[in-house]
């Protein structure tokens, strides 16, 4: 009887374990003040469906098809505001607090004097990467990206120059933003 109850409890908690990062409800409230909102929620079944409609002949779509083939979910919340201070630190903290577990490691944290803060978190799954979270908090923009499943960030940034993603010239840094930026080496290493 006891083991049956335990099995039931495990079965009940399994979906919660599968979706370890949850987009906070208060993020959805930000949409009311935003001038532009992007809300993407694609679970495994939707990713598989989307992948079937990606063309193998189109080189960009073929890359994305390969990229998402092993993913379990893709979640994006992006808000653009017409003035500063439309979201609070607690809105971002609701996500950050979920990432303070041994599975997740913050690999990049950039804070600039202009208030353009970026953070990249990676989930360790043995030797492989099990997920990626990008938080970009700017005065008039807040973007949170959660990619659930094995992903190589290099593969994602290789899409630069395609699909509207700006191409990064690795020989020199970009001109946008302030030169007084400072990075925070909070966790393991910077890049």
């Amino acid at each position: 009887m006891t083991w049956k109850l335990s099995m039931l409890a495990i079965a009940a908690f399994c979906p919660l374990l599968a979706q370890d990062i949850k987009m906070p409800v208060n993020l959805d409230k930000l949409a009311e003040h935003a001038t532009e909102t992007v809300d993407v929620t694609l679970d495994t079944s939707m990713l598989q469906l989307a992948s079937r409609f990606l063309s193998k002949d189109d080189p960009d779509e073929a890359k994305v098809k390969k990229l998402v083939s092993k993913l379990k979910g893709v979640y994006v919340r992006s808000f653009e505001f017409d003035k500063d201070g439309q979201y609070s630190k607690s809105d971002v903290e609701a996500i950050r607090s979920q990432l303070r577990t041994p599975d997740w490691a913050r690999i990049v944290g950039v804070k600039s004097v202009q208030g353009e803060n970026s953070e990249v978190y990676l989930k360790k799954n043995g030797d492989q990467l099990g997920g990626l979270v990008v938080i970009c908090a700017e005065p008039k923009e807040l973007t949170i990206v959660h990619i659930d499943g094995p992903i190589d960030p290099e593969e994602l940034s290789e899409l630069g120059g395609h699909m509207g993603i700006p191409k990064l010239d690795k020989s020199k840094p970009g001109k946008s933003g302030g030169s007084k930026s400072k990075s925070s080496d909070e966790d393991k290493h910077e890049e």
Binding site: E61, S118, L159
Partner: peptide, 28 residues
């Protein structure tokens, strides 16, 4: 779903690029 996925990949890619650019700027 395909359109949503392409939008998501576009945003994720560009935000990663931007972060990488910020880090490079600091290193530079």
């Amino acid at each position: 779903a395909k359109e949503k996925l392409l939008v998501a990949v576009r945003i994720a890619g560009s935000k990663l690029q931007k972060t990488q650019q910020q880090v490079m700027k600091i290193q530079f």
